[in-house]
Simulated scan of single mutants.
Amino acid sequence: MDSDLVLVLGLILVGLAIPAAMSAHSDGRRPIAPAATLLIATGLIVFAYVAHPGGYTVRDVPGVFYSVVGRFMR
């Protein structure tokens, strides 16, 4: 699997887990599923960083995101 795709999947999972964790916290529930999702997302992001030669910088993330989305939009 492409490290760019893994990075984008991890970022999307983070984006989905944060509102779920806030919702669970506001309802007084234990955020088990959002916590597990955050752990998986963190693992994906770390794997992508290690697998990509030279790693990623914060400046690279928007370009990587748009290139991956562009590949699937064609």
Rank of each mutant, 00 (worst) to 15 (best):
D2G: 06
V69G: 01
T37Q: 09
V68P: 03
A21N: 11
Y66R: 14
L9Y: 14
F72G: 14
A36F: 15
M73L: 14
A17Y: 15
T57R: 15
H25T: 03
F72P: 02
L39E: 04
G54D: 10
A33S: 05
R59L: 12
G63V: 01
D27C: 02
T37Y: 15
Y66M: 13
P62F: 15
L38F: 15
V69C: 04
P34L: 11
M73Y: 06
P31D: 10
Y56V: 02
F65E: 12
T37L: 14
A35Q: 08
I12P: 01
R59Y: 04
L16Q: 07
A20I: 04
G70P: 06
V69M: 11
D27T: 03
L44P: 07
T37C: 04
M73P: 01
H25M: 10
V8H: 04
A41M: 13
R30E: 14
A21C: 07
R71Q: 10
I40F: 13
T57M: 09
V68W: 14
G54W: 12
F72S: 05
L5M: 07
A33H: 11
P53Q: 09
M73K: 02
R74H: 14
S67E: 06
S3I: 00
V69I: 12
A20L: 13
A36V: 09
A35L: 11
S23L: 11
V14D: 13
L39H: 05
V61R: 03
V64M: 08
V69F: 08
V61D: 01
G28F: 15
I40R: 05
I12T: 03
D2P: 09
M22I: 13
V68A: 06
G54E: 13
P53R: 02
I40W: 13
D2N: 05
L39M: 12
F72K: 04
G43Y: 10
V14M: 13
V61T: 01
A33W: 15
P19G: 08
V68D: 08
P31S: 10
V69E: 12
A24S: 10
T57D: 00
I32H: 01
D4W: 11
D27E: 12
V58Q: 05
P62E: 07
A33F: 15
L16N: 11
L11E: 11
L16D: 03
I45W: 15
P62G: 06
A33V: 10
Y66P: 00
R59S: 09
L44D: 07
V68E: 03
R74A: 08
S67Y: 11
D60V: 02
V64D: 02
G28R: 06
V58C: 00
H52T: 06
A51T: 01
F72L: 04
V68C: 05
R74I: 01
R74L: 07
L7W: 01
M1L: 14
A21D: 13
V69W: 11
V61S: 03
S26E: 04
L39P: 02
L11H: 04
P53F: 09
L5N: 05
A21M: 10
V69P: 02
G55D: 07
V50N: 08
A48P: 08
D2R: 03
S23G: 01
G15M: 12
P53I: 05
F47M: 03
A48W: 09
V46R: 07
R30C: 06
A20P: 00
G70Y: 06
